[in-house]
Design a protein around this nucleic acid. Sequence first.
DNA 1: ATCGTTACTGAACGCTTGTACAAAAAATAT
DNA 2: ATATTTTTTGTACAAGCGTTCAGTAACGAT
Lengths: 251, 251
Amino acid sequence: MGVVRALETEEHINEERGNAEQGAGASGRARRQERGEETRRKIMEAAEAEFARGSYHSVSLRDIAKTADVRLASIAYHFGTKEELWKAVFLRRAIEMNRERVALLTETARKAKGSVVPLRGVLRAMLQPGIRWLFDPGGRGLFIQVLIRSPLDQTSPMFDMFYRDARHIQRFIPYFKKALPELTEEDINWRMHFCIGAMHYTITDIKRLEYVSNGVCNTEDMEEMVDRVVTFCEAAFRAPPYEKQPPRPCT
Amino acid sequence: MGVVRALETEEHINEERGNAEQGAGASGRARRQERGEETRRKIMEAAEAEFARGSYHSVSLRDIAKTADVRLASIAYHFGTKEELWKAVFLRRAIEMNRERVALLTETARKAKGSVVPLRGVLRAMLQPGIRWLFDPGGRGLFIQVLIRSPLDQTSPMFDMFYRDARHIQRFIPYFKKALPELTEEDINWRMHFCIGAMHYTITDIKRLEYVSNGVCNTEDMEEMVDRVVTFCEAAFRAPPYEKQPPRPCT
DNA sequence: ATCGTTACTGAACGCTTGTACAAAAAATAT
DNA sequence: ATATTTTTTGTACAAGCGTTCAGTAACGAT
């Protein structure tokens, strides 16, 4: 519950572990913390990579310890349980992602200087950060896939994060409304959903596109990927509003 | 390898276990097989439900045995290993799904009587079967989610099924080409990918839409859902072809 | 130099897992 | 009725799991 709230509010974003100390203790204290933080960082990094490869249950703490080059008991020392490790790894990135998306939206709106934010800009703010992470050589490139897949596993301890960016994604609705006044709120929600689906699938199943297309599609150009999905979604969003029982030819 | 091929060809579709017997042995033989088949069926059904709830590694054979009301050792007797059980469960539905999609495409093409198949019809053939399964009260309603998620877990024994419907999905390409001659093959592959993403996300994350939209979206009408996603994808497919470095206003 | 805190370690715990196997049971064949 | 084959069962096993804990080492504070 508290965990979910942390994702819905912006206030907690910068509230990271250790930020409480105000730089008072100076060097000695800092160096001691540094020693612990190094191990902690290695564990999180390894966990990020391991979890990205499989599911929560398919990864063992021993796997993670080996990858991190750390003794098994150190994980327990720093994180307590496997579940807490998972949550720590997950939350860090989830908060980061939400912050980036909202920041990009705000920036885009600022540039519009009061006039209507172009549809393409709103879509870019929604779809670009995830794809940019995919190309990140660091942990984010791995973890964006975990971020996307985890709500699919009902036995994962983060299944209640199902709604992890629910509230945050609602921020986009007013912008879509202004850009496309003829759409109902129902239309907008459905289409936002479809857009996110196209984006998520591109992130998690990009290898499949390479294979299906026999290498015809260039999947290594980030800007091209973003442009393609944005163009796709923009045209889709401009489809006429949904009408109940649309005239169908035969069946 | 052989398993993957089975999905790519249509010939093996009706080759189900036990079809080899030609009805020669008559009643006695049939009744004996029936006894074994009953247990086998119960196990597969339970496995389907359990696997749908989590991941391959989060489900134990003991869970499945309990759900199926069958002794643990019976699973080993009928399927050998956990992996073989998983493959049996998986393959049955995967083949079924591919067959349905291709059948629908063929039927749609037949109705067009030689003229160009309308874009909307091609998209319907591609997107409708999955959504129809979602509304199936039987095992398919559960398993469609497994079908979609499984390639995402690299530790699942079906990860090599990554490309499970790769070949099969290529059948749609010529139809898109005819309906939209101005698009390159690259454009078509990208957009097919996005369409499947929107559809998959709708199937696996439909609860999220309910939540995000605060219940504004009606997610219980199958025809509405299909129409919405098809309309979305149709408009998106009709977007102008991709151009490298499209003129962007600011950044 | 001593103390106390923090970080780390090795070994062990109890439990669950997938698998194996011999024996029983059931069904069919002779 | 007997023999044979198919199916089911209880039990056991080794391996792996997450977690615990007493003990050690490193460090800053006193």
